[in-house]
């Protein structure tokens, strides 16, 4: 069965290494792309925003989830958005926000962008299917 290509947005809510959410969402996204579908956006909300910290160090015998998303994102030019409100209060910050809040460092990993909840609502309007991966 090879269905007509459609567009997906993926909503991810669970913290990496605390729940399977980020990992199951990754497999789904990769599989959807490989089947010829388009990914409109991947939106990380709630504790899932931790995927965007550049300071995460993963033991050698465990999967580097952030690296996997970055590689997928780079290969297919994915729009990987981290909810800015959820991120800032959990210590995920880009250089602009670090200046604005007078923090001495920023840590947003490459390949991810911080943006508002409007991006989640836009995703509901601009994609054929929304799939949520809860914690």
């Amino acid at each position: 069965m090879s269905p007509t290509p459609i567009s997906f947005s993926i909503l991810v809510y669970g913290a990496p290494y605390s729940s399977q959410s980020v990992s199951t969402a990754y497999r789904f996204t990769k599989t959807a792309i490989e089947k010829g579908h388009r990914i409109h956006r991947v939106f990380f909300y709630g504790d899932a925003v931790q995927i965007g910290s550049r300071l995460v160090a993963v033991p050698q015998d465990e999967v580097d989830l952030q690296l996997k998303w970055q590689q997928l994102g780079e290969q297919y030019q994915l729009d990987m958005v981290i909810c800015i409100a959820a991120a800032l209060k959990r210590g995920i910050i880009n250089s602009d926000e670090a200046k604005r809040f007078e923090k001495d460092a920023s840590n947003l990993a490459e390949g991810f962008t911080l943006s508002g909840l409007g991006q989640m609502i836009d995703a509901t309007q601009s994609s054929d299917r929304i799939v949520t991966f809860g914690y």
């Binding site: 069965m1 269905p3 459609i6 809510y13 789904f28 089947k35 579908h37 299917r129 799939v131 809860g134």
Partner: peptide
């Protein structure tokens, strides 16, 4: 498998996630 998961999302109008 994961491929059929994608097909299922495509063949339904919407999905609801219970977690």
């Amino acid at each position: 498998d994961d491929q059929e998961f994608v097909d299922l999302v495509v063949s339904h109008n919407a999905s609801q996630s219970w977690y």
